[in-house]
Amino acid sequence: MKHYPFIIFYMFCNVFIYAFHGSFWVYLATFFAFSSVIVWGSFDIQLGYFVNSITHKRTKLKEVTLTFDDGPTEFTPQFLDLLKEYNIKATFFCIGKQIEKYPETFKRIILEGHTIGNHTFSHSNNTGFLSTSKITNEIERCDEIIFKVGNIKTNLYRPPFGVTNPNIAKAIKKTHKKSIGWNIRSLDTITSDEKKIYKKVTKSLKKGNIILLHDTSQKTYNVLADILLFLKERKYSTFTINSIIKND
C-alpha cells in the first residue's frame, strides 16, 4: 500500500513550497498532481496503491491462469464445457445475486474443480463511493451465499472494476480476504471485436500472467476457444489462483 507514504510526501511538498514562498499556481499544480495519482491508484489495481493485490505469479514455468468475473450466467455452462474439453481449471469470481439466480451452475463450477472467489453481492456501479460498512456487507453477503449454495468458503476477493480505495482496503482487511487483480485485461466487456480481444490477451502473454475475462457473453466464449487453442499450441500450462495463495 503506497497511499500513506505518498500523503506524507505531498504534505512535505506543501511545507517546502510554503517555506520558499511558492505561488498559488505552484500549490495548485501540486494538488492536481496529487489528485491525478489518487485517481490513477484507484483504478489501476496493478499499482497496489491502496491495496496490495496479487496480480501475477512468480514462476519459471510456462504457465498462466484464466479468471472469469461476474458470473454465473446463462453462458457459464458453455465456458465450463470448453474448459473441461481442454482439462483446464480456472478461477471464477462470482457475484452473490448471480449465484442465487444460477445455483446449479455455481455448484457445477465447484464440482468440476474450479476455484471460487468473492466478487461482492451486487457488483454495484457505485463501488468506489461506498462506505467501509457497505462494502463489508457486500463481501459478507456474497460469502453467505457462496457457503449456502456451494458449502464452501473462500478467502479470495476481486474488487468490482478493479477499483480500490481506503474504504475498500479496510473492508478487505476486516473480512480477511486476499485481493486478486490481474496483469492481462481482455476488455471483453467493452470491446465488441473478438479479434481485438484475442490480440489483447495473446500479444504480450508471459509466464505467470493472470488473465481477466468474463463468462457473460457468447463473444467471450468464442474468444476463449481461440485462446485455449493458442495456449495448447504454445505449450502453456495453467494454474489457479489458490495455488498462489498456498505457496505465498
Score class of each variant (00 low, 15 high):
91 T>R: 00
204 S>V: 07
94 C>P: 02
24 F>S: 07
130 L>E: 03
235 K>M: 11
108 R>L: 14
103 P>Q: 01
205 L>A: 12
48 G>W: 03
190 I>D: 02
75 F>I: 14
79 F>K: 07
136 T>G: 08
117 G>A: 02
34 F>A: 07
146 I>R: 01
230 F>D: 03
145 I>G: 03
63 E>W: 09
172 I>H: 04
25 W>T: 07
57 K>M: 12
90 A>R: 00
66 L>K: 07
26 V>Y: 10
90 A>F: 06
185 R>V: 05
69 D>T: 10
221 Y>E: 05
242 N>M: 00
44 D>A: 08
7 I>H: 07
45 I>G: 07
29 A>M: 14
234 R>P: 01
165 N>D: 13
148 K>A: 15
153 K>N: 13
120 T>A: 08
140 E>S: 14
82 L>T: 05
45 I>S: 13
122 S>T: 08
195 K>V: 10
201 V>G: 07
91 T>I: 05
46 Q>C: 08
235 K>F: 11
195 K>G: 02
73 T>E: 06
59 T>V: 08
193 D>P: 13
121 F>T: 01
216 T>D: 03
29 A>H: 09
129 F>L: 14
245 I>E: 11
71 G>N: 10
80 L>E: 01
9 F>I: 13
7 I>F: 13
227 I>F: 11
67 T>A: 14
22 G>W: 01
219 K>E: 12
42 S>R: 10
62 K>T: 11
242 N>E: 15
193 D>G: 04
136 T>H: 05
156 L>C: 11
88 I>R: 02
25 W>S: 13
169 A>Q: 02
55 T>F: 05
3 H>L: 13
173 K>C: 02
112 E>V: 14
142 C>I: 01
230 F>I: 11
35 S>P: 00
44 D>K: 10
61 L>T: 08
67 T>M: 11
110 I>H: 05
198 Y>E: 10
158 R>I: 02
228 L>G: 05
115 T>D: 13
137 N>K: 12
199 K>H: 14
184 I>H: 02
77 P>R: 02
178 K>I: 11
191 T>M: 12
84 K>I: 00
40 W>Y: 15
211 I>P: 11
107 K>M: 02
168 I>V: 12
1 M>D: 08
195 K>Q: 11
106 F>I: 02
12 F>K: 01
14 N>V: 00
30 T>I: 03
145 I>L: 05
236 Y>M: 04
